[in-house]
C-alpha cells in the first residue's frame, strides 16, 4: 500500500468503528459499519495477489449483504416507530433482521463460513485487525440492543457457533484457519451470554482481543502460517515456545490462565438464570477447541517435530522483527485471572 494512502485508509477504519460506537442514531451506526468495512478492503490486499483479492471480495460480499439487511431492519424500525434512536423494537421482524445481519457481520454460526475462507487469504496483520477491531462495532450494536434480541435465535446461533468453531478446526494445519475457527467459537460464547449479561460479553471480547493479539504477534514475529513452521520455534526462541503454549492453553480456557475468567463468569451467569443444559453442552463442545489447541501445543513445545537438518540452525541468525507490545499482551493473556473481580469496576 502506498504510504500516502495508509493514513487515509487506517483513519477511516478507526473512524468508522468510532462513529458506530459513539452514535445513538441508527443511520450513523450503519454509516460507521460501512466505512470500516470499506476501509478494510485495501488493508486486506496489500500485495494484490489473486488469493487476497478473492478473500477481500468474499469479505465485501458478506459484509455488504449484512449491511443491506441491517439497513432494511433500520427502515422497518423507522416505519413502525417513527424515530431513529436505538430503543426497544416493537417490531419482531425488525429485531430478527437486525440480529441476523449482525450475526453475519460477526461470523456467528449459520453464517460463519466466510471467516476461515477470508482469513486464510489475507496476511497476518490484516487478519488480526479482522478478528479483533472489526468485531467491535457489531458487538457494540448488540450490546445496546440486547434486551430485545430474540433469545432462542441467539442461543441457537451461540451453541452452533461453539460446536462448529470446534468441529471445523479439528483437522486444520493452517494457523490462520485455526485462529478463524477459534474466533467463531469465542463469538459463540459471547453470543450466549449477550442476552443475559452484556457486560460479561464485553469482558470476553476484551480478553479474547488480548489472546488473539498475542497469538498473532507471535505468528507475525517469525511469519508462521502453518503448524510445521510453528514447530521450528524451539530453535529460534525457546522462551516464545513456552509462551505460545501458555497463550494457547489460555485460549482454550484452562483455569489458572486469563482465558478461564470469561468462561467461568459465563457459565456462572447462565446457571444463575436457570439455564443449565446449554452451558454444560457449550463447555463440553469447547473441548473440541481445546483439542486442536493442544495439538498445536504438542507440535510446538512438547515434542521435537520432525524437520530437516538444515532448518535447525535458525538460532544462528539475529532477530529482525521486534514487536514492542508483545510482552505486555503475553502477560495480559496469561495472568489476568486474579484480577477478575476488577471487572465489576470496569463495567
Amino acid at each position: 500500500m502506498n504510504f500516502l494512502s495508509k493514513p487515509i485508509i487506517y483513519s477511516t477504519l478507526i473512524m468508522g468503528t468510532l462513529i458506530t460506537l459513539f452514535s445513538s442514531h441508527w443511520l450513523l451506526m450503519w454509516i460507521g459499519l460501512e466505512m470500516s468495512m470499506l476501509a478494510m478492503i485495501p488493508i486486506m490486499m496489500p500485495n494484490f495477489t489473486p488469493r487476497s483479492t478473492e478473500a477481500a471480495t468474499k469479505y465485501f460480499l458478506t459484509q455488504a449483504s449484512a449491511s443491506m439487511l441491517l439497513l432494511f431492519s433500520i427502515m422497518l424500525t423507522m416505519t413502525y416507530s417513527g424515530q431513529w434512536a436505538i430503543m426497544q423494537h416493537q417490531n419482531q421482524m425488525a429485531s430478527f433482521m437486525l440480529t441476523i445481519s449482525l450475526m453475519m457481520k460477526l461470523g456467528l454460526a449459520p453464517f460463519h463460513f466466510w471467516v476461515p475462507e477470508v482469513l486464510q487469504g489475507i496476511p497476518l496483520l490484516p487478519g488480526l485487525i479482522l478478528l479483533t477491531w472489526q468485531k467491535m462495532a457489531p458487538l457494540a450494536i448488540l450490546f445496546q440492543s440486547f434486551s430485545t434480541i430474540n433469545k432462542p435465535l441467539m442461543l441457537t446461533s451461540a451453541i452452533l457457533s461453539v460446536l462448529l468453531g470446534g468441529w471445523g478446526g479439528l483437522n486444520q494445519t493452517q494457523l490462520r484457519k485455526i485462529m478463524a475457527y477459534s474466533s467463531i467459537a469465542h463469538m459463540g460464547w459471547m453470543a450466549a451470554i449477550l442476552i443475559y449479561n452484556p457486560s460479561i460479553m464485553m469482558m470476553n471480547y476484551i480478553i479474547y482481543t488480548f489472546l488473539t493479539t498475542s497469538m498473532f504477534s507471535m505468528f507475525i514475529m517469525y511469519n508462521n502460517t502453518t503448524t510445521s513452521s510453528l514447530s521450528h520455534t524451539w530453535n529460534i526462541s525457546p522462551l516464545l515456545t513456552a509462551m505460545m503454549m501458555i497463550t494457547l492453553l489460555s485460549l482454550g480456557g484452562l483455569p489458572p490462565l486469563t482465558g478461564f475468567a470469561p468462561k467461568w463468569l459465563i457459565i456462572q451467569e447462565m446457571m444463575k438464570n436457570n439455564n443449565i443444559i446449554l452451558p454444560t453442552a457449550m463447555a463440553m463442545v469447547t473441548l473440541l477447541n481445546l483439542y486442536f489447541y493442544m495439538r498445536l501445543v504438542y507440535s510446538t513445545s512438547l515434542t521435537l517435530f520432525p524437520s530437516k537438518n538444515n532448518t535447525k540452525i535458525k538460532w544462528l541468525y539475529q532477530h529482525t522483527k521486534h514487536i514492542p507490545l508483545l510482552p505486555v499482551t503475553l502477560v495480559l493473556s496469561a495472568f489476568l485471572l486474579p484480577l477478575t473481580p476488577m471487572t465489576n469496576i470496569l463495567f
Binding site: 500500500m1 443511520l27 454509516i31 470499506l38
Partner: peptide, 22 residues
C-alpha cells in the same frame, strides 16, 4: 452528517482506485 457522507464518498472512490491500480 454531510461531512461524514462526503468523507465516505471520497474514501469509496479512493479505495476503488487503490485496489484496482495494481
Amino acid at each position: 452528517l454531510m461531512f461524514v457522507a462526503g468523507w465516505s464518498m471520497f474514501v469509496g472512490i479512493f479505495i476503488a482506485i487503490e485496489i484496482t491500480r495494481g
